[in-house]
Amino acid sequence: MMSALIKWMQRYEGWVGAGGGLCILAGLYLGLVASPPDYYQGEVVRIMYVHVPLVQTAMLAYSTLFVGSLWYLWKRDPIVDNLCHAAAGISAFLTALGLITGSIWAKPTWNTWWTWDARLVSFAVMFLILAGYLMLRTFIDDPEREARYAAVFAIVGFVDLPIVHFSVEWWRTLHQPLSFSMRGVSMSKDMLIPLGVMTVGFSLTFFYMVMIRTQMLYLDHLLAAKKGRLLSQVHLSSDVGSSSSSLSTP
């Protein structure tokens, strides 16, 4: 019996994926060809159109993991645990890419690949939390206990997200302040549009990736469970000497 959530994902994944792909392609054109260079940074500012969406999507992915973990602890649905596991893997991947592209942007603008800045350090800590989450999931044999511990770990680790977001407000940092805040938007429209299109594209692509990866984990578990049951039935039938089992081995 296939889960309703998996069926829902199968139904909408094509639209979400297509939307994400089209937005990213349009954002690439707008960011690389149509938008102007920055007065101070020159052409290097174009790195912003890939770095900022990666970082924002990584934080969106962790937020999804946080909400999913709460949902799992409430409902104890194994498909929701698959969703959390998927979101964590993608978030770790996006966080790593965000750190690398940020480092590449830092070199021509700050003249260094890395600095012990509050924003950079808190974001690197987020990567370590996600790496810890993924490692934790490999240590525990009992799937139910693994899912429960991982959910609690993700919820505790979520405390880093507000620190990442507000670090540029709370401490004096080298990183530029928030472009979107209660004070308004501190960016020209020529740059805001490609950035917005790319951010929407990356967010949709993230949701598409979660749909695909959740199905992947679900199918992996389903296949393993079915194979295990087939194997046990084969053993059982040979033990008992019965020939009633007509199941084929995978």
Binding site: P37, H51, F93, K107
Partner: peptide, 21 residues
Amino acid sequence: LALVTNYGYVVGAYLIGLLPL
């Protein structure tokens, strides 16, 4: 007047950001 740009940084960031993804 314009600043001198090393386009290697821009190309590198886009390749590293999008290709692995």
